[in-house]
Amino acid sequence: MNFSSEILEQAVEEISKLPGIGKRTALRLALHLLDVPIIQTENLTKALSNLVNEIKHCKICNNLSDTDICHVCSNIYRDDKIICVVEDIRDVMAIESTHQYTGKYHVLGGKISPMEGISPADLCITPLLKRIKEQKVEEIIFALSATIEGDTTMFYIYKILGDTDIKFTTIARGIGIGEELEYTDELTLIRSIQNRIPYHQNIKKD
């Protein structure tokens, strides 16, 4: 591309770094921002600045939040004896959209993947173990992606806590093998949460 403006070129270069955005799409977006009222572009700039500088991770569950404690963890009507373990914020949003789950969450921040160099130490597992002990949790629901990495992560956590009295369940496999939770439709998620199955039936302990 031949740019008549270095400022425009720089904007296109930065926009094209976003996932799924090529140079041509980035150029269309940049030109669109020049066409709309300046207040709209300024609002976008402010929103992005707040996203980067103001957003927090909940000190309890690791969910994204505007405050130190997210609205789920601070909700006294949610059952803190049940924790749904998920990979990231998108999974929380997907389950919350069903309006069927009344427990709390714990966001790991990913899943164990030796191929990608992601070990248990890279995930929010230690705070989960501490939380389970302090809150006297009765049930852990594994709501991880139906992948080898997801199963590996579930097994790792289960092996640590398998000798406790905690009930371990997984969401029912109405979700296809290899599918990401965030792309699952709401009806399937509702049925998966409601019809969760004991986790210990799926594996053998040493």
Results as ranks from 00 to 15, higher is better:
Gly162Arg: 15
Ile171Tyr: 00
Gln135Thr: 13
Thr147Cys: 12
Asp163Cys: 05
Gly162Phe: 09
Glu14Pro: 06
Glu138Thr: 12
Thr169Phe: 06
Asn2Ser: 10
Leu18Met: 14
Asp151Ser: 11
His200Trp: 03
Pro127Tyr: 04
Leu189Lys: 10
Glu138Ile: 08
Ile166Tyr: 05
Ile203Cys: 05
Leu181Phe: 04
Ile7Val: 11
Arg90Ser: 12
Ile166Ser: 06
Tyr77Ser: 13
Lys56Asn: 11
Phe3Lys: 01
Ile112Pro: 04
Pro37Phe: 06
Gln100Val: 15
Asp68Lys: 00
Arg78Trp: 05
Arg173Asp: 10
Ile148Gln: 13
Lys111Pro: 01
Lys104Thr: 15
Val72Asn: 13
Asp151Glu: 14
Glu180Ile: 10
Ile193Phe: 14
His200Ala: 08
Leu129Gln: 02
Leu144Thr: 05
Asp79Asn: 15
Lys130Ser: 13
Val12Arg: 03
Ala172Phe: 11
Thr98Val: 07
Ala11Cys: 11
Glu42Asn: 09
Lys46Cys: 04
Thr188Cys: 07
Ile203Tyr: 07
Tyr105Pro: 12
Leu34Ala: 11
Arg191Met: 10
Phe168Thr: 06
Cys61Glu: 00
Phe168Glu: 02
Ile112Ser: 05
Lys167Asp: 11
Gly150Ile: 08
Ile175Arg: 02
Leu144Cys: 07
Ile166Asn: 09
Asp80His: 15
Leu51Cys: 04
Leu187Met: 10
Asn62Glu: 00
Asn195Phe: 14
Leu123Cys: 10
Ile141Met: 11
Ile177Met: 11
Cys124Asn: 13
Gly176Gln: 14
Ile132Asn: 12
Gly178His: 08
Met154Ala: 14
Ile140Asp: 02
Leu144Trp: 06
Phe142Asp: 01
Leu29Ser: 01
Leu31Tyr: 07
Asp163Gly: 08
Asn63Ser: 14
Glu138Gln: 14
Tyr101Gln: 06
Lys23Ala: 02
Phe168Pro: 04
Lys46Glu: 15
Ile38Pro: 03
Met115Asn: 07
Gly103Glu: 12
Ile55Met: 12
Gln201His: 11
Leu31Ile: 06
Thr153Arg: 12
Pro120Trp: 06
Gly103Pro: 11
Ser97Ala: 05
Val107Lys: 02
Ile148Phe: 01
Lys133Phe: 07
Gly22Ala: 06
Thr126Pro: 05
Val12Met: 01
Ser113Arg: 08
Pro19Val: 08
Ala172Val: 07
Cys124Leu: 03
Gly20Ile: 08
Gly117Thr: 07
Leu27Thr: 06
Ser16Trp: 01
Lys56Thr: 08
Ile83Leu: 15
Thr153Asp: 07
Glu6Met: 01
Ala172Thr: 04
Leu181His: 01
Ile157Leu: 12
His200Asn: 05
Ile112Glu: 03
Met115Ile: 14
Glu149Asn: 14
Ile157Ser: 06
Val52Asp: 02
Asp206His: 13
Ile197Met: 05
Tyr156Asn: 15
Ala47Cys: 08
Ile76Ala: 11
Asn62Phe: 08
Asn2His: 13
Lys136Leu: 07
Thr25Asp: 00
Leu108Ala: 09
Glu149Pro: 10
Ala172His: 09
Val137Ala: 04
Gln194Phe: 03
Lys23Trp: 03
Lys104Pro: 00
Ile38Met: 09
Glu149Ala: 13
Tyr156Ile: 15
Pro120Gly: 07
Ala47Met: 09
Asn43Leu: 09
Asn2Glu: 14
